[in-house]
């Protein structure tokens, strides 16, 4: 365990890169998935395309996804954009289903009541349906966050940064470094998960009030 304390700056740098590569895709994925989830919930034909597509995308192994990215994006193999887009795709694939399910679970009488009070569709979506879909969406975000944090290390295999570099260095020289990376990953995952849970609570005070 001595490695962490002797190389604190290296550990912090790896943590920063790891965090950036994991969290940006979660945020991007959420932004993309909300309209797509809305579409999938609203239109049967959109759902018939989006659901199988996200299943297939979710099936592609992460290393393969990262390696294929440069062809699709025209980027260099060492560019961080590859892993960011790859992880964004997984996040979107996961969240579409969650958001569509969440929207679907909003009771019909609630939507009807909002209509009866004169909400226009966009405002109704943003202020009534979307908030009610928050719990299911948060559940999806938690899975996406934790698996992204664990998957970022794969990028190290083709030369990207983050804790994965520590695994590789550890494999080649000193096992201690692997444990440093592993602990870093688990701590980040734990913190990310707790923050999302807290966000969920803050955003949905009515969930606890009902218990």
């Amino acid at each position: 365990m001595t490695w962490i304390f002797e190389n604190w700056d290296k550990f912090l740098e790896a943590s920063g890169v790891h965090l950036r590569l994991a969290v940006i895709p979660v945020l991007l994925g959420l932004v993309v998935a909300i309209p797509l989830g809305w579409l999938a919930n609203r239109s049967r034909s959109a759902s018939a395309v989006l659901m199988p597509l996200s299943n297939v995308l979710y099936t592609v192994p992460s290393l393969a996804m990262i390696v294929i990215m440069p062809v699709l994006l025209g980027s260099k193999i060492l560019d961080e954009i590859n892993i960011i887009v790859a992880l964004t795709i997984y996040t979107v694939a996961l969240l579409i289903r969650n958001i569509a399910d969440g929207l679907h679970s909003v009771p019909g009488h609630v939507v009807a009541a909002a209509n009866a009070m004169g909400f226009r569709p966009l405002r109704r979506f943003l202020t009534v349906e979307l908030p009610l879909a928050v719990p299911v969406t948060i559940a999806g975000l938690r899975v996406a966050m934790v698996s992204n944090i664990s998957m970022v290390s794969i990028g190290a295999l083709i030369g990207l940064g983050g804790y994965g570099q520590l695994f590789i260095q550890g494999f080649q020289s000193n096992e201690d470094i692997i444990w440093a990376g592993l602990i870093g990953t688990l701590v980040l995952a734990f913190i990310g998960d707790v923050l999302l849970q807290l966000a969920g609570r803050v955003l949905t005070p009515w969930v606890r009030a009902g218990r």
Binding site: I154, F167, F171, E175, I178, G181, L186
Partner: peptide, 18 residues
Amino acid sequence: TNGLRALPTLAVLIIVVL
């Protein structure tokens, strides 16, 4: 199962091989 999701497979592989 939840804990495993957080576990990087690369680290698991390397540790087992070491």
